[in-house]
């Protein structure tokens, strides 16, 4: 018989069992230990930026945070004081426009995917398009809105910004809504159909109410993402130092300020006051985005209960 591969103990009354003992001199154990340490350290290091960002936001942004920031207009170079009231309003309006476009479109497309014809060729194409849009660079959404809205209407505007953002919201809304609709138990649907409900009644009275939390979660996640986007706004909404409304009525076809673009513009200037404002705006923006995220998660958690 061939030799044993590992040093095996002879069957004497008191066999030597030292080779069974743990030892870091054993190459494999040492290697395993070292690798575990490396992975642990790398994981900790991966979290350092997060803490650093949050710390800096609260340290530098919190320092200059004041109530006036929320209703004053951005200061010019060398000017003291000022705020970003118009930028907050601009962000809210543009995200609103984007949601007004993306949510109905996304939900109706999702209804098609989940209800009308889930296995059709068209449904597969739509899902593919959704995936393509998910990985779509945000700057290209801006390029598209520039060509489709800015060039057409002849100027930068909140509408152009909203259109650009809606393209980024659409896939999130659509794909999460489809998933939420599919989570509705079959038997609920069958009960409605069995009572003679038309497809529309079934969707309107059973499917949508049941899947509403899931759909809303997707919407909130999309809103959170859109609120923080900068690249698609740079050359669609541009920026403005003034309020979007002139004398009471809102001007949607004017260049519009947004928090994100304000941060970008003020981050590269040599004026201390504007830089501090950029940090404060960053803090406000992050809090806004995180709130939207948290609301989305809270809604989906309620659904599970």
């Amino acid at each position: 018989m061939s030799a044993n591969i590992h040093p095996s103990a002879p069957s004497t009354p008191t066999p030597d069992t030292r080779h069974l003992e743990k030892s870091l001199r054993n190459k494999q154990s040492l290697f395993s230990f070292a690798m575990s340490a490396v992975v642990g350290i790398l994981t900790l290091l991966a979290l350092v930026p997060l803490f650093s960002v949050v710390l800096m936001l609260f340290y530098r942004g919190g320092k200059s945070l004041s109530f006036a920031l929320f209703y004053e207009l951005p200061p010019g170079p060398m000017q003291e004081g000022g705020g970003f009231g118009n930028a907050i309003l601009g962000t809210v309006i543009m995200v609103g426009i984007a949601a007004a476009i993306a949510v109905p479109m996304g939900v109706l497309a999702a209804l098609f995917l989940a209800e009308t014809a889930p296995d059709s060729r068209l449904a597969k194409t739509v899902r593919f398009c959704g995936k393509v849009l998910t990985g779509f660079p945000s700057i290209l959404a801006g390029v598209f809105a520039y060509g489709a809205v800015v060039l057409l209407t002849g100027g930068f505007s909140a509408v152009a910004g909203g259109v650009a953002l809606s393209i980024l919201m659409l896939p999130t809304v659509m794909l999460t809504a489809e998933e939420a609709l599919r989570m509705v138990p079959r038997k609920m649907k069958e009960a409605a159909i069995g009572m003679g409900a038309t497809d529309f009644q079934c969707v309107w009275m059973v499917l949508l109410p049941t899947s509403l939390p899931g759909i809303l979660t997707g919407v909130m996640l999309a809103v959170a993402r859109a609120a923080g986007e900068t690249a698609p706004l740079l050359f669609t909404a541009l920026f403005s130092n003034y309020w979007i409304s002139a004398g009471g009525n809102v001007e949607l076809m004017q260049p519009t300020a947004s928090l994100a673009v304000l941060i970008y513009n003020f981050s590269g200037v040599p004026f201390q006051n504007q830089v501090e404002l950029a940090w404060a705006a960053a803090l406000v923006l992050v809090l806004l985005v995180l709130t939207a995220n948290l609301i989305g998660q809270a809604i989906s958690r309620r659904r599970i209960d």
Binding site: M105, A109, F112, T116, T125, V126, C129, T198
Partner: peptide, 27 residues
């Protein structure tokens, strides 16, 4: 209402495909 509903889901499904095509074509 039922017919309109089915048609509109169909339309919006097409619309989202058309959007992607439009983006690519426009650029």
């Amino acid at each position: 209402a039922n017919k309109a509903f089915r048609l509109s889901t169909f339309a919006f499904a097409w619309l989202s495909v058309a959007l992607v095509v439009y983006i690519v074509c426009m650029i």
